[in-house]
Design a protein around this nucleic acid. Structure first.
Length: 1125
RNA sequence: GGGCAGGUGGCGAAAUUGGUAGACGCGCAUGGCUUAGGACCAUGUCCCGCAAGGGGUUGGGAGUUCGAGUCUCCCCCUGCCCACCA
C-alpha cells in the first residue's frame, strides 16, 4: 500500500471529473427531481480566503449527498464582478478594471476548482459580461416602465478636495478615506427604485416562508413598519393671509358664525373678505363665480374658503382665474350630482361640476377638506371620494351643528390656519404635547420661515446650516447632548387642548423619517424629556402607569373578576442616612415598600402615616411630597385570594427620628422590615408598581409604557391603547410609516452597469430602446472622477453625445452606473438559462429550477441583498416575468470562521489562515472536512480555526487510508449493525445540515471498523460512499482501487435496514430518587416488569430497609425508584 | 437605547427535544514502538480515594416535576446587527 499522497490524488481526480463532465447539470434528468442549491457568488477580489472555502465547500457536501439520493442537483457559481475595489485598483495602479477583474476571476476559478467542489462551471455567470448586463439593463427598464424608477434630489457624501462622491464605506469617521478631508452632504439628482411600494408585501410574504425566524425578524426590523397617526397642528405666525370666505346655498355673508370666523382670524392679524353671493336662493354659477373673483385681488397670500355650495363656487372661480393662491379650504362641499346617491337639488341646472382637479392641485399647493360626521352618509362618502382626487388633507370631525352651521364652529376656525403635520405612534399622549420640533430639513423652515421676517431668522438659519453639515455619525455620537433653536414669532396650536405651543428646530428629529416633524411629549418620551429639561419647557403627565402581572407568583387569574381598591405606596427615608424602608412579604415573594388601602374618610397622607406606623413601628413619619400621579396595578392578591385592581398614590416620607414601637405579631408574621441603601433599592424590590414609584424618587425615569389616560379631557380614564385609536380618529388619521427608504441605485462610478437612459433636450428622459441594449461600458483613459460629481463616463464624449431615440435630436446619455446590488438581485435566474441571447431566462428553463430550494449565504446579507432581491423578484412577478412571488424557499445563514486567536481574520491582526498553504500541506479533503466538523454550520456563531484540529481530521483520513489493508475480496455477509446505524445517521444529519455530527458518526464507525479483523468488500465500498460527500478525492481513489470503473459520485447513497439498527441488549440507567446510581443491561425486548426486577436486583443493597413509593420505567432509558421519605 | 442570538470540561462541541450530561475531535498524562518526531498504537483525562465506593456538575438564584442543560420567573454576562425611526 502506498502512503496517502493527497497532491497526486486530488489533481488526478479533479482532471478526471472535468474531463468526464460529471457535474454538468441537465435541465432535467429521467426519474430525477430537480434540486436548486444556491450559494452567494463571490466578488473577484483576487484571492480566496478561508471564508470562501467555508461558503462553497461545505454546501458542496449537501449537493453531493442530494445527487447520491437521486436528485438532479443544480449547484452553480459565478462572479459578482462589478464594484468599487476594481475601480480603486485601477486608479491606484493605472490598470484597466476589466483586465484586473478578469485576471482575478481566472485565478480564483483555479482556486475554487482546487476545493473539489461539484460546481457546474458550464453555467458560470459573470455580471460584468455584456451578455449578462444587457439583461440587467433590460430588467431595470422594465421596472422603469412599470413606474418603479424615478429621479430625485438626494443627499450624497461629497469630498470637497477630491471633488468626488464617496460611498458610505469610503467615509471613515466623517472623513474622506483617501485624503482625510471632512465629508459634506451634497444634494444630487439620483435614480431611485420604489422599494417602499412593496414594504407591506415584503413583510407579509415572509410569513409562510420556511426561513429561520431570526432572519425574518431582521427583515421586518429593517423595513421597520410602525403604525401610528398623522396629526396636524395649526400655526399661528407673523405671516398675514387674506382669507376669502364663500358662503353656501340660501345663506349670506351676514351670519353670526361668519362674524365669528372673521373675529378669530383678524385677531391674528389676517385680512378677511366675505362677499355676499348673488341670488343665494336661486344661485347661478356664472353670477356667483363672477362676484367671487371680483371680491379682491387673489395672490399667493390668499386662502380661499368655500362652505357647501360655496365650495363649488370656490373651485370654479379658482379654475377660471388660473392664479396661484396659498391654500384652498372646502367645508362640507356640495355633492356632485353625478355621485351615486346624490339627491336632486334646485341648483343642479345652473351649476356644472366640470372641475379640473389637476389644475386646482397646481394652483393651490395646500388643500383641505372638512367633513362633518353628523351629516348623512352620502355626503361623508362623497367627501372621502373627493379627497384623493384633490389630493387634499381630509379632516373628519363633529361639527357643533350639522353641516357646520352653528354660530361657532371651532373646528373650522382651527383648520383655516396653516399647519404642521406630525407623525406619532403615541397619539394617546396628544394632551401632553407641549411643543413641536421640526427637523432641520423640514420644508416649512425652507419655504415659509426663512422667507418671512421673524425674530431670530439668522440664528435659525445658522443652526440649520451647521446641522445639515453634521454627518449622521456625528449626530449619533452626540445623542445625549440635544441642541435646537426656537422659532420665534410663530407658534402652533395643540388641536386637543387648543393651547399655543412653541416650535423648535432640532437635529434630534430626522428629516427623512415620518413627516420630519414631531409633537414632543416630554412626560412620556425620553428624548423629548431631555430636550424639555434643557430648554425649560413644560412637562405634563397624561398617562398614569398601569402594570399587569401576567406571570409570576401574583399572575392574574384569567376570567375572574377584579376587586378595585385605592391604596398608597409609602416610600420612607431614613432620618439621617440615604436608605429606605423595604418590606419583604413572608407568605409570598413580594418585596416592596409600605403599602396599604385608604380607609373611608381618610386622605392618602393620613393612610400613609397610619400604614407606616402599623407596618414598621416607626412613629414619626413626615410627609415630603407626592411622587406624581396614580400608579395602577392589576395582580392576584395571594393572601386575599382575589384578582386586584389597585390604584396607588405614591408618597414620599422621611422619619423625624428613630422612635420605634414594636409592631403587632400579626404584622410581624406578614413581613420583615429592611433598611436598604438607596443604590440597592432598585435591585431589592421585585414588584412592578413599586419599581415605577421608586423611579420617580430620582425623577430621571420617564414612563413610556401603557396605562390610563389622565389630564386628557373627555379621554381621561381610557386605556392608552383605546385612547390612541380615538384620538388618532378625532384629531388626525391613522398612518403606517416605514424605516425602509427607497433604493438609490445611482453610482457616480465607472465600473458598473451603465444606466440605460437618455436625456433629450426636447423629450426629457427617454429609456434606451431594447434593440440598442446593452449600452456598453466604453473604454476610458483614466478612472478618476470627472470633478463635478459625475462618473468618469461623463468625460467620454463619444459615449455621452447621442441621438434621441424618440425625436432623433441632440441628446446625452446618463453617465451614472447601477448599484451592484442590482446585478445580484437576479443572478440566480440567469443560472437557469445562462447563455440565452433572447431573454434573461426562458420561462421554460426557469420553471425547471425556480424557486430555489436552498440559499446558503453570509449573515451580512440578511437585510440588504436578501431584501433587494426579494423586492426585485416581486416586481418581476407582478409583470409576469417570473412565476413566483418569492425566489428562495429556504434561506440559511452560515457561521463565521475566526483566526486561531478567536479574532476576526484580518491582515492587521496577523491571524489570516491561507487556505492554499493548508491545502498544499494537508490536502483539500482535510480542509473541507475540518470546516464541516468544526461546529454547526447554520448558526449565528463563530469558530476559531484550530491548526491542531485540522491535523486531527487529516489523521482520520489517514486511518481511513490504512483501513484498505483489512479489506477482503469477497462481498461476503451482511453489513454490520454499526454500518447500518451510520448510513441512517450520516444521511439524516447531512440532510439537516448537521455536518459536524455526521462526521463524528463516521469517526465512530471508523473506530468500530478498525477493531475488526477484516472487512468485506461490500462493507468497505459502503463506507466509501458515506465518505464521498466529505472527502470526494480520497473516496474516489479508494473506490477506484477497489475495482470500480464509474465515479463514486454518481453512485447511490446506501440503504440501511431498520432491523439492524436495534441492538440485542440495552443499558438502563438506574436512579434512586432521581439520582443515577448504577446501570443494568437487559435484552432489548424485555418487558417493564423484567426491567424493573433486574434493576431492583442491581441496587438491592441500596434499597434495603427502604420503601419504594413509586417506580418509573422509561423504555430503553432508565428506571427510577422513588422512595418513601 | 432597540432587536436577535448565546452562556455546557483546559479547547471546538454532542445530548433522540423532559429521561444515564460531556458523544466525536483537539489538547494533556502515562506506557509501548522508534535513531528521531509536531508520526503511530494502547490506556487514562470533573473532584476525593490504591481500590471498593462516595460526591459534585451545564452563568447565578428560585420554581414546576419521580426526574431539568432542556420548561417558568428573576438576575448576571458575552457576541452580532441596527441605532435620536417619534
Amino acid at each position: 500500500m502506498k502512503n496517502y499522497d493527497h497532491k497526486g490524488i486530488e489533481k488526478k481526480w479533479q482532471d478526471f471529473w472535468t474531463k468526464n463532465k460529471i457535474y454538468t447539470t441537465p435541465d432535467s434528468a429521467p426519474k430525477k427531481d430537480n434540486f436548486y442549491l444556491l450559494v452567494e457568488f463571490p466578488y473577484p477580489s483576487g484571492n480566496l480566503h478561508v471564508g470562501h472555502w467555508y461558503a462553497f465547500a461545505v454546501p458542496d457536501i449537501l449537493a453531493r449527498y442530494h445527487r447520491m439520493q437521486g436528485k438532479n442537483v443544480l449547484y452553480p457559481i459565478g462572479f459578482d464582478a462589478f464594484g468599487l475595489p476594481a475601480e480603486n485598483a485601477a486608479i491606484k495602479n493605472k490598470l484597466n478594471p476589466r483586465k484586473w477583474t478578469e485576471g482575478n476571476i481566472a485565478y480564483m476559478k483555479k482556486q475554487i476548482q482546487s476545493m473539489g467542489t461539484s460546481f457546474d462551471w458550464s453555467r458560470e455567470v459573470v455580471t460584468c459580461d455584456p451578455s449578462y448586463y444587457k439583461w440587467t439593463q433590460w430588467l431595470f427598464l422594465q421596472l422603469y416602465k412599470r413606474g418603479l424608477v424615478y429621479q430625485k434630489e438626494t443627499a450624497v457624501n461629497w469630498c470637497p478636495k477630491d471633488k468626488t462622491v464617496l460611498a458610505n464605506e469610503q467615509v471613515v469617521d466623517g472623513k474622506c478615506e483617501r485624503c482625510d478631508t471632512e465629508v459634506e452632504q451634497r444634494q444630487m439628482l439620483q435614480w431611485n427604485i420604489k422599494i417602499t411600494d412593496y414594504a407591506d408585501r415584503l413583510i407579509e410574504d415572509l410569513e409562510p416562508l420556511n426561513w429561520p425566524e431570526q432572519i425574518k425578524e431582521s427583515q421586518r426590523n429593517w423595513i421597520g413598519r410602525s403604525e401610528g397617526a398623522e396629526i396636524d397642528f395649526p400655526l399661528e405666525m407673523g405671516k398675514k393671509y387674506k382669507f376669502v370666505y364663500l358662503h353656501g346655498y340660501k345663506s349670506k355673508a351676514d351670519r353670526p358664525r361668519n362674524h365669528w370666523y372673521r373675529a378669530g382670524l383678524e385677531a391674528l392679524g389676517h385680512e378677511v373678505i366675505i362677499p355676499d353671493l348673488p341670488n343665494s336662493n336661486n344661485p347661478v354659477e356664472e353670477e356667483q363665480v363672477k362676484i367671487a373673483i371680483e371680491a379682491t385681488d387673489y395672490d399667493e397670500n390668499t386662502v380661499l374658503i368655500g362652505h357647501s355650495l360655496g365650495a363649488v363656487v370656490a373651485m370654479k372661480a379658482l379654475q377660471k382665474m388660473n392664479k396661484k393662491i396659498a391654500r384652498l379650504v372646502l367645508i362640507a362641499p356640495t355633492i356632485d350630482p353625478a355621485f351615486p346617491g346624490a339627491e336632486e337639488r334646485p341648483f343642479h341646472k345652473t351649476f356644472k361640476w366640470d372641475i379640473d382637479y389637476e389644475l386646482l392641485k397646481k394652483l393651490a399647493p395646500n388643500r383641505l377638506l372638512l367633513s362633518d360626521l353628523k351629516e348623512p352618509e352620502v355626503r361623508i362618502n362623497y367627501i372621502r371620494h373627493l379627497a384623493p382626487k384633490l389630493d387634499a388633507q381630509l379632516v373628519e370631525t363633529h361639527a357643533t351643528q350639522e353641516h357646520f352651521t352653528g354660530d361657532k364652529e371651532p373646528d373650522v376656525l382651527m383648520w383655516l390656519r396653516p399647519t404642521i403635520r406630525v407623525f406619532t405612534t403615541r397619539s394617546d399622549t396628544l394632551f401632553g404635547a407641549t411643543y413641536l420640533v421640526l427637523a432641520p430639513e423640514h420644508q416649512f423652515i425652507r419655504q415659509f420661515y426663512t422667507s418671512q421676517t421673524s425674530l431670530n431668522k439668522a440664528e435659525v438659519q445658522q443652526y440649520v446650516n451647521t446641522a445639515l453639515k453634521r454627518s449622521d455619525l456625528e449626530r449619533q455620537t452626540d445623542q445625549k447632548n440635544k441642541t435646537g433653536v426656537r422659532l420665534e414669532g410663530v407658534s402652533a396650536m395643540n388641536p386637543a387642548t387648543g393651547e399655543k405651543v412653541p416650535l423648535y428646530v432640532a437635529d434630534y428629529v430626522l428629516g427623512h423619517y415620518g413627516t420630519g416633524a414631531i409633537m414632543a411629549v416630554p412626560a412620556h418620551d425620553e428624548r423629548d424629556h431631555e430636550f424639555a429639561e434643557k430648554f425649560g419647557l413644560p412637562i405634563r403627565e397624561v398617562v398614569e402607569p398601569l402594570v399587569v402581572a401576567t406571570s409570576g407568583f401574583d399572575a392574574i387569574h384569567q376570567d375572574e373578576p377584579f376587586q378595585e381598591r385605592n391604596s398608597i405606596i409609602a416610600i420612607v427615608k431614613h432620618w439621617s442616612e440615604d436608605k429606605y424602608i423595604c418590606l419583604a412579604w413572608k407568605p409570598a415573594e413580594w418585596k416592596g415598600f409600605v403599602v396599604g388601602g385608604i380607609e373611608k374618610g381618610e386622605d392618602a397622607i393620613a393612610a400613609g402615616v397610619r400604614e407606616i406606623v402599623e407596618e414598621t413601628g416607626y412613629q414619626k413619619p413626615t410627609f415630603i411630597r407626592q411622587l406624581g400621579g396614580t400608579i395602577h396595578d392589576k395582580f392576584y392578591h395571594t393572601i386575599k385570594r382575589v384578582n386586584t385592581f389597585a390604584h396607588f398614590t405614591p408618597l414620599l416620607f422621611q422619619l423625624e427620628d428613630g422612635t420605634h414601637v414594636d409592631i403587632a405579631d400579626t404584622e410581624k408574621d406578614l413581613h420583615d422590615v429592611h433598611w436598604v441603601d438607596a443604590d440597592k433599592v432598585a435591585n431589592f424590590v421585585n414588584s412592578r408598581d413599586i419599581k415605577v414609584a421608586w423611579a420617580r424618587v430620582s425623577g430621571k425615569n420617564i414612563y413610556t409604557g401603557e396605562g390610563i389616560l389622565s389630564n386628557s379631557g373627555t379621554f381621561s380614564g381610557l386605556m392608552t391603547e383605546e385612547g390612541r385609536k380615538q384620538m388618532a380618529e378625532k384629531f388626525g388619521r391613522t398612518k403606517k410609516m416605514y424605516k425602509l427608504r427607497d433604493w438609490i441605485v445611482s453610482r457616480q462610478r465607472y465600473w458598473g452597469v451603465p444606466i440605460p437612459m437618455i436625456h433629450c433636450e426636447k423629450c426629457g428622459i427617454v429609456p434606451v430602446p431594447d434593440k440598442d441594449l446593452p449600452v456598453e461600458l466604453p473604454e476610458v483613459k483614466d478612472y478618476l472622477p470627472e470633478g463635478s460629481g459625475k462618473s468618469p463616463l461623463a468625460k467620454v464624449k463619444k459615449f455621452v453625445d447621442t441621438a434621441c431615440p424618440k425625436c432623433g435630436g441632440k441628446a446625452k446619455r446618463e453617465t451614472d452606473t447601477l448599484d451592484t446590488f442590482v446585478d445580484s438581485s437576479w443572478y440566480f435566474l440567469r443560472y437557469t438559462d445562462p447563455k440565452n441571447p433572447k431573454a434573461f431566462a426562458s420561462k421554460a428553463k426557469q420553471a425547471k429550477w425556480m424557486p430555489i430550494n436552498l440559499y446558503s449565504g453570509g449573515a451580512e446579507h440578511t437585510t440588504m441583498h436578501l431584501l433587494y432581491s426579494r423586492f426585485w423578484h416581486k416586481a418581476l412577478y407582478d409583470m409576469g416575468l417570473v412565476a413566483d412571488a418569492e425566489p428562495y424557499t429556504r434561506r440559511m445563514n452560515r457561521s463565521i470562521i475566526l483566526g486561531p486567536d478567536g479574532q476576526k481574520m484580518s491582515k492587521s491582526h496577523g491571524n489570516v489562515i491561507d487556505p492554499d498553504e493548508v491545502v498544499a500541506r494537508l490536502g483539500a479533503d482535510t480542509v473541507r472536512m475540518y470546516l464541516a466538523f468544526v461546529g454547526p454550520y447554520n448558526e449565528v456563531s463563530s469558530f476559531p480555526w484550530n491548526p491542531d484540529g485540522v491535523v486531527g481530521v487529516r489523521r482520520f483520513l489517514e486511518r481511513v487510508w490504512r483501513l484498505q489493508e483489512k479489506v477482503g475480496t469477497e462481498d461476503a455477509g451482511a453489513l454490520s449493525s454499526a454500518l447500518h446505524k451510520a448510513i441512517k445517521k450520516v444521511g439524516e444529519d447531512i440532510a439537516a445540515q448537521k455536518f459536524n455530527t455526521a462526521i463524528s458518526q463516521l469517526m465512530i464507525l471508523l473506530n468500530d471498523m478498525e477493531k475488526r479483523e477484516s472487512l468485506s468488500r461490500n462493507e468497505w465500498t459502503t463506507f466509501l460512499r458515506l465518505l464521498a460527500p466529505f472527502a470526494p478525492h480520497m473516496a474516489e481513489e479508494l473506490w477506484s482501487s477497489a475495482g470500480n470503473k464509474k465515479s463514486i459520485h454518481v453512485q447511490k447513497w446506501p440503504q440501511y435496514d431498520e432491523k439492524y439498527l436495534v441492538d440485542e441488549e440495552v443499558t438502563y440507567g438506574i436512579q434512586i430518587d432521581g439520582k443515577t446510581r448504577d446501570e443494568v443491561r437487559v435484552p432489548t425486548d424485555a418487558d417493564k416488569e423484567t426491567v424493573e426486577k433486574a434493576a431492583r436486583d442491581v441496587v438491592a443493597a441500596r434499597l434495603e430497609g427502604k420503601t419504594i413509593k413509586r417506580t418509573i420505567v422509561v423504555p430503553k432509558r432508565l428506571v427510577n425508584f422513588v422512595l418513601e421519605t
